[in-house]
Amino acid sequence: MPRRIEQLADEIVRLQGELDREIERRRADLGWRLNEGLLEFEHGITQRHRRLRLGARAFMARSDFATVITAPLIYSLIIPVLLIDAWASLYQAVCFRAYRIPRVRRSRYIVMDRDRLGYLNAIEVLNCFYCEYANGVVAYVREISSRTEQYWCPIKHAFAVTDPHLRYYQFLEYGDAEGYRARLHEFRQRLRTEAQDADPAAKPI
């Protein structure tokens, strides 16, 4: 990979770390923190949240007609999302074992925690469950597919790609035939090592 592209990829990782630290500072300002995987709110924050809760009946009264009428269509998407979740999990359980690639830990991508926010009513909590799960499944499947892409075809596209996964920046340049033949095995070996480092709970089987 050209040095300049490698530097830019490293800069993206550095900026992500800086963003994470800024998010942590914002959390402290809002009165909560994570302590060994558990949410902790400062004294009085939970009571203040509950005072700001809008009851389900009032929430429905404020909802516009378009929101109510489209709700069944929105929630019907849960069926294909459930199928994708199950099928992707089966796929990596079988194929990643065959490729000796560490499996993606699902719990790192599908995070359900917004129900602990006292200012959300029952309908809002249900909406959040739906969005948390659906977006988590998309992120989970993307990680599975990015590992698959690195294993089988670590080649960049000729055309610009919007928001590619992070491994993409290290892929071979489009048209680099010699590099592909010479380095495909290297990419596969690196994937096994990198995936292990990225997800300590996932072990090659």
Score class of each variant (00 low, 15 high):
residue 11 E to S: 10
residue 86 A to C: 02
residue 95 C to V: 09
residue 19 L to V: 12
residue 192 R to Y: 02
residue 201 A to D: 13
residue 97 R to D: 09
residue 139 A to H: 07
residue 95 C to N: 08
residue 82 L to F: 13
residue 4 R to E: 13
residue 100 R to S: 11
residue 199 D to C: 09
residue 58 A to F: 04
residue 98 A to C: 09
residue 75 Y to P: 01
residue 15 L to K: 12
residue 136 G to F: 06
residue 188 R to L: 10
residue 201 A to Q: 12
residue 114 R to S: 08
residue 117 L to E: 04
residue 198 A to M: 10
residue 17 G to T: 07
residue 4 R to F: 10
residue 14 R to G: 00
residue 143 E to T: 02
residue 85 D to W: 14
residue 197 D to G: 09
residue 144 I to T: 00
residue 127 N to Q: 05
residue 1 M to K: 05
residue 77 L to Y: 15
residue 73 L to H: 14
residue 77 L to I: 07
residue 135 N to T: 09
residue 156 K to Y: 03
residue 59 F to N: 08
residue 23 I to Q: 13
residue 86 A to Q: 10
residue 111 V to Q: 03
residue 117 L to P: 01
residue 182 A to P: 02
residue 13 V to P: 02
residue 176 D to C: 00
residue 121 N to P: 10
residue 203 K to E: 07
residue 131 C to W: 08
residue 158 A to H: 06
residue 81 V to C: 00
residue 69 I to E: 12
residue 80 P to I: 15
residue 188 R to H: 00
residue 7 Q to N: 06
residue 63 S to A: 11
residue 21 R to L: 10
residue 44 G to N: 05
residue 60 M to N: 04
residue 117 L to R: 11
residue 80 P to F: 11
residue 152 W to E: 09
residue 178 E to K: 12
residue 92 Q to W: 04
residue 164 P to R: 02
residue 137 V to W: 02
residue 190 R to P: 03
residue 79 I to W: 13
residue 151 Y to H: 01
residue 69 I to K: 12
residue 8 L to I: 02
residue 188 R to Q: 15
residue 176 D to F: 01
residue 84 I to V: 15
residue 101 I to D: 01
residue 20 D to T: 10
residue 136 G to V: 13
residue 57 R to H: 02
residue 199 D to N: 11
residue 44 G to Q: 02
residue 186 E to D: 15
residue 73 L to E: 15
residue 11 E to C: 02
residue 178 E to R: 13
residue 92 Q to L: 01
residue 179 G to H: 12
residue 160 A to I: 07
residue 118 G to Q: 03
residue 166 L to E: 14
residue 34 L to Y: 11
residue 133 Y to M: 13
residue 163 D to Q: 14
residue 91 Y to W: 06
residue 87 W to I: 15
residue 42 E to I: 09
residue 12 I to G: 15
residue 98 A to S: 05
residue 94 V to L: 05
residue 92 Q to T: 05
residue 149 E to A: 06
residue 15 L to V: 14
residue 88 A to Y: 04
residue 190 R to A: 11
residue 176 D to N: 12
residue 20 D to S: 06
residue 18 E to L: 08
residue 190 R to G: 08
residue 13 V to H: 10
residue 147 R to S: 05
residue 182 A to W: 08
residue 178 E to N: 10
residue 90 L to Q: 04
residue 155 I to M: 08
residue 143 E to D: 14
residue 47 Q to K: 09
residue 9 A to L: 06
residue 48 R to M: 11
residue 183 R to N: 14
residue 120 L to Y: 13
residue 63 S to L: 09
residue 5 I to Y: 09
residue 131 C to T: 08
residue 111 V to H: 04
residue 129 F to K: 04
residue 151 Y to E: 00
residue 79 I to K: 03
residue 180 Y to L: 15
residue 51 R to I: 08
residue 63 S to M: 11
residue 86 A to L: 12
residue 58 A to V: 01
residue 108 R to M: 12
residue 200 P to N: 00
residue 47 Q to Y: 06
residue 72 P to N: 01
residue 183 R to P: 04
residue 136 G to K: 04
residue 197 D to E: 12
residue 77 L to E: 15
residue 163 D to N: 15
residue 133 Y to S: 01
residue 197 D to A: 15
residue 43 H to R: 13
residue 181 R to S: 10
